[in-house]
Amino acid sequence: MARKISYQQAINEALAQEMRRDESVFIIGEDVAGGAGAPGEDDAWGGVLGVTKGLYHQFPGRVLDAPLSELGYVGAAVGAATQGLRPVCELMFVDFAGCCLDQILNQAAKFRYMFGGKAVTPLVMRTMYGAGLRAAAQHSQMLTSLWTHIPGLKVVCPSSPYDAKGLLIQAIRDNDPVIFCEHKLLYSLQGEVPEEVYSVPFGEANYLRDGDDVTLVTYGRMVHVALEAANNLARQGIDCEVLDLRTTSPLDEDSILESVEKTGRLVVIDEANPRCSVATDISALVAQKAFAALKGPIEMVTAPHTPVPFSDALEDLYIPDAAKVEAAVRKVIDAKRSAA
């Protein structure tokens, strides 16, 4: 039986194993060493939540603390990637993306295309996202849609410790820039993770539950919300198929369409804001390519079109939960009944 470790330990292990395998892999970011190695400090921070803890001493000179300038160190990482290194830079909160967007959007994402394939940018940007930590509007966003919109980027959003390790190893070995999104509420999640090295391919959704009645498509932390709803609904005789996208770019269109063609009903669950989002994208895909299979309207369960509230009560209302997913599932089932 595989041992159980946390999502956070799984990420740390993937980094360590890839750094051991490939000397060109290095880490750069704010507080990723976090005072480690300074006089009197042994291994202080290892990132704001300790994800890179212990790596500074294992890999001397390869875990670099950067000044508080996202533009500077993300730019340095992009440059290093074009010169044969494999940087894993850490954007502490995805909310800080604005400070380095040019480096990602206009540089890293474009090089391979603009230089006709003669340049590669094997960059990973790890970043923490998501609401639920009472961290208010500037430290709680989910910007997956923003990254997914940009051609030239790959966007990864693991939901489990197993996927976190395998997808991060895949990301580090990939020759394109990868945005690797980690939900802050998943870091303590425990799961079975092989000690051995493995990689999980991009663009391959994970079927977490088989069902004939409704397809639930989701990714990241919302996978757990969808599974909770599916378990509750199963007790009422409604069988949901739960698909975890794992990566929003590339997107596993085939699995989504195949499942909807079986169930005829789709509910998309997305923690991000709803406009121009992964949820709307998948809804459009299914409406275009599987319309004939649909037995009723598509439902989306998302955050509202507002910033993340600081009030505990409002933040709890803001984040999609199992009750909202169950209500949406009942709605698409009832839509079928009234149409029949």
């Binding site: 197993y162 395998g166 092989p194 051995e196 090295v197 493995y198 990689s199 999980v200 994970n206 079927y207």
Partner: peptide, 11 residues
């Protein structure tokens, strides 16, 4: 199937 895929993904 998932367990078999997990095995097949190991390096």
């Amino acid at each position: 199937l998932e367990d078999m895929l997990k095995f097949k993904r190991l390096e």
